[in-house]
């Protein structure tokens, strides 16, 4: 999953990016509203975390302009928790709302929920064949036995599972699983797919030559 954090407080931005990458998310950062809006408009992020108080372009304005072109889920961060602010945020098109200071766990849970909802998945557990994926606990098991995956491998499995029954192109995978710090020129993706097949069975991910990857539609 690829996320964008728009936050002008450098220490907070750095902390959030680091925490998200730890969880296997691809995470981009922006330090002001203009940069945030530019990135949000030009990449298909799975979720955007947007601070309200931003230099140059405040969070409300970024959200308003973004909503003209994109439906990307947006979680607003604010230090003001008045009802008026919440109502304004939700009315402008924010999908969720979090008041500073917040717990990291809560932020992560809300981001997962937003991603699930945008993929039209209400449940936290997805089952494909003999593989089940717990998106809340971020664990994968096969025939009831937990399989250990790296964060990047899990992100790849989750992304494919959330788009099961659809062909997922390599470009999509690169865009959603790797952030601006990763090199997309490597054959990293092939390495990850190969490792997942070893752990979850060769048939779990089918390759559509010239198109991309595909996982079965079982629920």
């Amino acid at each position: 999953m690829r996320t964008l954090i728009v936050e002008d407080e450098p220490d907070l931005l750095a902390g959030l990016l680091s925490a998200l990458r730890d969880e296997g998310y691809a995470a981009d950062g922006a330090a002001d509203g203009e940069e945030g809006l530019y990135k949000a408009e030009n990449y298909d992020y799975d979720v955007v975390v947007l601070d309200v108080m931003l230099p140059r372009l405040d969070g409300w304005e970024v959200l308003r302009r973004l909503r003209k072109t994109k439906k990307t889920p947006v979680l607003m961060l604010t230090a003001r928790d008045t009802i008026r602010d919440r109502v304004r945020g939700l009315d402008t098109g924010a999908d969720d709302y979090l008041v500073k200071p917040f717990e990291l766990d809560e932020l992560m849970a809300r981001l997962r929920a937003l991603i699930r909802r945008s993929a039209s998945q209400a449940q936290a557990i997805l089952t494909i064949g003999d593989v089940s994926i717990d998106t809340a606990a971020r664990t994968v098991s096969r025939n009831g036995t937990e399989v250990t995956l790296t964060a990047r491998e899990y992100a790849l499995v989750e992304y494919l599972a959330l788009h099961r029954g659809q062909v997922v192109t390599r470009t999509m995978l690169y865009e959603h699983l790797f952030d601006e710090n990763d090199s997309t020129l490597s054959n990293l993706l092939d390495v990850h797919v190969s490792n997942i097949r070893k752990k979850l069975g060769h048939d779990f991910i089918a390759t559509r030559r010239g198109h991309g990857y595909w996982v079965g539609p079982d629920v």
Binding site: E9, D11, L12, G15, L16, S18, A19, D22, M53, A79, R80, T82, V99, K100, P101, F102, E103, L104, D105
Partner: peptide, 25 residues
């Protein structure tokens, strides 16, 4: 009051996020 709490919340957020991330593994 709202401004003051806002100004205090940002550094508190930093401390929370930084420590929680650092301690996660």
């Amino acid at each position: 009051t709202s401004d003051a709490s806002h100004e205090l919340r940002t550094p508190v957020s930093v401390i929370l996020i930084q420590t929680q991330t650092a301690l996660s593994r």
